[in-house]
């Protein structure tokens, strides 16, 4: 299956902003975090297709995963 991974803010340091990966079925968010070298506790906002998700969320073909460290503003 194919999943689009988008990284934001400091997660972009030394990593691509966006990539499409071919992944085995039943891949979870935490598998991707591990391959990116990002600890689950560093993630403040985790979205799959724009909806709240977490490290245990399982991905399916065509999903977009967006990961943010703690950020805010106003």
């Amino acid at each position: 299956m194919h999943v689009t991974i988008k990284l934001f803010a400091t997660f972009r340091d030394g990593r691509p902003k966006v990539e499409i990966r071919e992944l085995p079925e039943e891949t979870c968010v935490k598998d991707i975090l591990q391959s990116l070298g990002i600890a689950a506790e560093e993630v403040a906002i985790c979205l799959v297709n724009g909806r709240d998700a977490n490290e245990h969320s399982q991905l399916v073909d065509g999903d977009t995963l967006a990961l943010f460290p703690p950020v805010g503003g106003g």
């Binding site: 803010a9 400091t10 724009g50 943010f68 460290p69 703690p70 950020v71 805010g72 503003g73 106003g74």
Partner: peptide, 25 residues
Amino acid sequence: ENGVTGQGLPTYGTAVLVNIINENG
């Protein structure tokens, strides 16, 4: 020590919200 006030806002300013708010639609 807070991630938002200690790192996110100092590094990117308030415009860091563009992508977050957009990704939430």
